[in-house]
Design a protein around this nucleic acid. Structure first.
Ligand SMILES: [Mn+2]
Ligand SMILES: [Mn+2]
Ligand SMILES: [Zn+2]
Ligand SMILES: [Zn+2]
Lengths: 138, 138
DNA sequence: ATATAAATGAAAAAGCTTCTCATTTACACC
DNA sequence: GGTGTAAATGAGAAGCTTTTTCATTTATAT
């Protein structure tokens, strides 16, 4: 019954929106590209256009329902917003994504912005590396 | 006489390479997109193709002569490499870029990678905000 | 000077994302 | 339950940055 979430966000309750939300909620993947969502919809038998998936994800972002990560090298991935900020570790071999929060870093960032006279609006932090799993694989 | 830098990097000494290097060294802008470099070359009277600018910048990156920042939202900017790692603050209004280093953050990043079993290869940190100048402008 | 591997320019292609516009749909109101 | 209207959708075109292709030019070793 997430129609309420959509109404609250000022969005009409439509099938594409409900289905995209459903995919995000039920997929094993916590971080999905628009293409991932699109393919999941097809597998589910829903013929929703890729342009609509992009539109809906962007609207969800605007409504605070999802957040967008802009990964190095072009494409974006989306994840359901749960209110808690966190940053990401990315495996350069297998693209695995792990999450972390570090209060020390968060605090230092605020201090740096203040030092430089910036009114901080956002930040993005990615740690790239080779994950445990891929280190074994050679 | 930076022909030596090119030879050392295993690159032939060509006019496009010398001129791109010259632009990077003499421009007021410390951070330049490929397009910025391309336009600066045109203003200088050098008709060097944009594809060549991209190629040369990418080779310079490989050779460690420049580093590439992948700014949120697509396009990259390049800066001459001076051996010292630093991160960036970006003004969302005027695109001004400021630099900083924070040893506490650097150290926390290494600790987080270790905790998660990642062999860290790189990281990218951008603080977005409104710079001092733009805060006045409203 | 000559040969050859590398570099260049111009245009096409790639890859992701947004836009256009004709058609369909949600929902407020009678 | 119908109706009207603004909003949403689908399909394809277009946009943007960056890379690739390939014919031609150039740097450098001999
Ligand atoms: Mn996440
Ligand atoms: Mn810099
Ligand atoms: Zn991995
Ligand atoms: Zn500014």
């Amino acid at each position: 019954m997430e129609s309420q979430d959509l109404r609250k966000a000022g969005l009409k309750v439509t099938l594409p929106r409900l289905k995209v939300l459903e995919i995000l909620e039920t997929s094993d993947l916590r971080h999905m590209s628009a293409e991932d969502v699109y393919k999941a919809l097809l597998e589910m038998g829903e013929e929703i256009g890729l342009a609509t998936v992009y539109r809906v994800l962007t609207q969800f972002e605007g409504a605070g329902l999802v957040s967008r990560l802009s990964i190095d090298g072009g494409h974006a991935v989306f994840e359901l917003e749960d209110g808690s900020h966190h940053d990401h570790l990315l495996c350069v071999r297998c693209n695995r994504i792990e999450e972390f929060i570090d209060d020390v870093i968060e605090q230092r960032q605020r201090a740096i912005a203040a030092e430089k006279g910036f009114e901080m609006t956002d930040h993005s932090l990615y740690i790239y590396g080779i994950c445990r799993h891929c280190q074994k694989t050679k």
